[in-house]
């Protein structure tokens, strides 16, 4: 293992973590402020990816496709909030889990009807299709580098929004004490809708960033949803900072688990056992991380509220 490979894997972990952050940020706010377990968050990600892919093909421009796709997904999310999810805020977690589970199934079927079973593909825009030489011997795909930069920019923007602005203050108040936030403004409904729309937009951005890397297909939301939930729970529900740290942790732990665990085990254990245990440990590394965090801090790394 050379240090170049190590650096490259660090970048991979960072990139994966930042994508998780985009999904987890919306999820954690919806969780924290509206007290809603939204399993259908992954469906918004899927919707975003499909819309971006379709609009990119229709307009012929990736930038335009991404912009329109994000806007459309945000509108879709807000419509969903107003028409459906609003009624779920006061229900218990069990009903929320079941209702949004049903939404996943509906979203998948609808997508299948509209776009068919074949995955869509979206190619990387030409300007970003190559690789960049970062250091002698270390080349990295330009598009993945773009993802890292976009992820960091969004994280910084969210930080400023939440910490420095009035809306951010409302959001934080909402996450730490819902009753108080409700008492503070008559426009709380509007705030909920806006937060939900912003979460949907972040989903779409993640979908847009990943669409050129992954097949855009039905069911793409579920596998990543669980990871996003793990991230949110590790970070502490309602905490943007927690979602960021949690996402980077999950990204890096998962990447390192896959990249180095089999080799390390082979060095320490008999090969037959190492070959069986390596992939298993790599697969469960993030769940171990989560259980470990919750064992020591039952409300996540950055618990919000009292």
């Amino acid at each position: 293992m050379t240090w170049i490979l190590f650096l490259e894997q660090c970048l991979n972990g960072l990139q994966f973590g930042l994508m998780l952050f985009l999904l987890a940020a919306g999820l954690t706010l919806v969780f924290g402020i509206m007290d809603l377990i939204n399993l259908a968050h992954g469906s918004l990600y899927m919707a975003g990816a499909y819309l971006v892919a379709t609009l990119t093909q229709a307009t012929g421009s990736f930038m335009l496709g991404v912009t329109l796709g994000i806007a459309a997904t945000a509108l879709l999310g807000m419509a969903l909030e107003v028409l459906l999810l609003r009624g779920l805020y006061k229900r218990d977690h069990l009903s929320q889990v079941l209702a949004t589970f049903a939404l996943i199934l509906i979203a998948n079927e609808t997508t299948r009807v509209i776009w068919g079973v074949q995955p869509l593909t979206l190619n990387v825009p030409d300007t970003l299709s190559g690789s960049v030489q970062l250091l002698p011997g270390l080349t990295y795909p330009a598009f993945r580098l773009t993802i890292i930069l976009v992820g960091l920019a969004v994280a910084a923007a969210l930080y400023i929004l939440v910490v420095k602005t009035r809306i951010g203050m409302l959001i934080r108040a909402g996450a730490s004490n819902r009753q108080m936030a409700m008492a503070m403004g008559t426009d709380i409904k509007w705030l909920f809708t806006a937060v939900f729309g912003a979460g949907a937009a972040l989903c779409a951005l993640a979908g847009a960033m990943l669409a050129p890397l992954l097949a855009v297909e039905v069911g793409m939301g579920e596998s990543i949803l669980i990871l996003a939930f793990v991230t949110v729970v590790i970070g502490g529900i309602g905490s943007i900072r927690g979602a960021f740290i949690g996402a980077i942790l999950v990204g890096v732990v998962d990447t390192f688990g896959r990249a180095f665990m089999p080799t390390l085990l082979r060095a320490a254990l008999p090969p037959s056992f190492a070959d069986a245990a390596g992939p298993a440990l790599a697969s469960i590394s993030i769940y171990l991380l989560m259980v470990g965090v919750l064992f020591w801090k039952p409300r996540g790394l950055f618990p919000v509220g009292s």
Partner: peptide, 20 residues
Amino acid sequence: EVYTKLGQLDYAVEISQMRA
């Protein structure tokens, strides 16, 4: 010789290993 999780989506880690 790399065995990945069934249904894995992102192969950045493995591709880096191949490059190395």
